[in-house]
Amino acid sequence: MRNIIKVGMAELGIIQEPGILTTLGLGSCVGVILYDRVVKTGGLAHIMLPSSKQIKNNENKAKFADTGIQLLLDRMLTTGCNKSSIIAKIAGGSQMFLFQNDNDMMKIGQKNVVATKEMLNLLRIPIIAEDTGGNYGRTIEFHTTDGRLVIKTIGHGVHEI
């Protein structure tokens, strides 16, 4: 039986080949996959908010794009991954409810995506694929064997990036 780790909101997980990382029902949150293509270790962070700065209660590092991605990278490096062979794939960040006069709260998905990209850019990790935005939820499944990220939706099909 293949090993599967389910990563919940504001959590992160790391798994080695041939394991699978999954997050069910991703909405405005962003799922960030880091993958070392040589040792075939994958990591998944389920980001809820863009930044740990300006937030008093920021103990849970996995919750934020800035600290969560850094933490995931650090943990992967301690398991023997090499930064130069790590790539990223990102999914999620949708806007589930649409309003006429959109307030900041509602655009959180978009903000999460922007912050995620900024952080990956800062860490010089290339984003080789993304499926973000829209107004629908996604279940994502990352396969460490071949680096496939399978995205399942309700009414928007199933595809791979």
Partner: peptide
Amino acid sequence: LCIDMAGAILSVPAIQFGHTGD
């Protein structure tokens, strides 16, 4: 209105609380 996965829909109030706690 949104018809979708429960996890995706409930991420909206979860994020609202994410600002202040866990």
